[in-house]
Design a protein around this nucleic acid. Structure first.
Lengths: 198, 198
DNA sequence: GGCAACATGACAGTGCACTGTCATGTTGCC
DNA sequence: GGCAACATGACAGTGCACTGTCATGTTGCC
């Protein structure tokens, strides 16, 4: 796969190799699941040696985890920018819906990721850890909005519920038909939550 | 560890070996974490050969996962027995609080389990799978109570939130001081949820 | 007491993620 | 054009979960 490309520059070439590995990994994982995909197979498909795989990624997991963007970091800013007239939940909904289109551009990755997480308990565990970090980050944002020095239990629960809704919407989006946007699904989850409280 | 015990009977002896392995595993995992504990070390501490470990447990994970009881199965019955005058959330709270004392007898196991899950992403993944199963089971119970043939999205969200509260309460109980009961912590979580909806 | 069924240990082996090391390119730069 | 810095492949190796197989107890049962 990797062909001589003289005029490319060192950085560009390594970047290309990196992309080749990620692409190969995504293809194989999409086809066979995460556990059934060996690093050796990924390397072979990317046209590099098995050893090189580990020069680009420290672990097998990192090749798929690296596709993450900074969604929750962005959340913090957008959430804080919501008007004070909104309740925390409403502000959360607005912020998340605002951010949703950014996610929509990554459908392929999200699909493979969701599938990968479902086919591997090790990966699922990593995903959970990420969830916990993200939830903590959301709790922090909520505490800021409430002018608390530190997130309390209420902030944490709220963040956990918000995160739950995001996860559910994301999974549905990845697995459902393409015409439904993440924003719509997210709105639907929030609507359901509202209804639950009567 | 395993000494000659002639009058014991085959079934009792294998049961004893099984317990020895579980106890050894719990001790080692409590001390060093899950990933750092090898099956070989567990076997050694239990006084059996490494091979025998795998005759009793098909995987390393299963030795700690096997400690689970049928909490969520019991939930179904107790939940359905709640009076119709209660909302679903209230009925859920009542049922869970009723079941909580049963959990309270298993503090040691729960502590080790919570710690184990935190020290291993593979185990965390397994735990998640269990969570999903339990959530589905709760959703089913809610659907029954609502006289629905099948759980709809509302049931699922409600179950997911219920399960979230249980998880949070359980973690706090395992990590906090012994004098606080699981039931209290659970009530606190439900109270927080109520407050969240204003 | 002796035989069949079962439990165990010993041993060798597999698969796979991950590492160290060295030799051989390849690139950027003067 | 040539040298230093870097990228890669080849190769050997490790750790650990997990398996197959065989020989040696050990138990239940007549």
């Amino acid at each position: 796969m990797q062909t001589r490309q003289p005029g490319l520059g060192r950085a560009a070439r390594t970047e290309k190799t990196r992309t080749a590995i990620v692409t190969a990994a995504l293809d194989l994982i999409a086809a066979a699941g995460y556990d059934a995909t060996t690093t050796e197979a990924i390397a072979a498909r990317a046209g590099v040696s098995p050893r090189t795989f580990f020069r680009y990624f420290p672990t097998k997991e990192s090749v798929i985890l690296s596709g993450e963007d900074d969604f929750y970091q962005a959340f913090r800013g957008v959430f804080r920018a919501q008007p004070d007239t909104l309740t925390d939940i409403a502000a959360m909904r607005e912020a998340l819906v605002t951010l949703a289109p950014g996610v929509a551009r990554r459908r392929r990755w999200t699909q493979v990721y969701v599938r990968a997480v479902e086919t591997s308990s090790a990966l699922r565990g990593q995903d959970q850890i990420k969830h916990d970090v993200n939830t903590a980050s959301m709790a922090q944002a909520i505490a800021e909005r409430r002018a608390l020095p530190e997130p309390d239990e209420d902030c944490e629960l709220l963040a956990a519920i918000g995160h739950l809704l995001v996860s559910r919407a994301l999974r549905k989006w990845a697995m459902g038909p393409a015409r439904v946007s993440p924003a719509e699904l997210l709105e639907a989850e929030f609507a359901r939550l509202d209804k639950l409280l009567d």
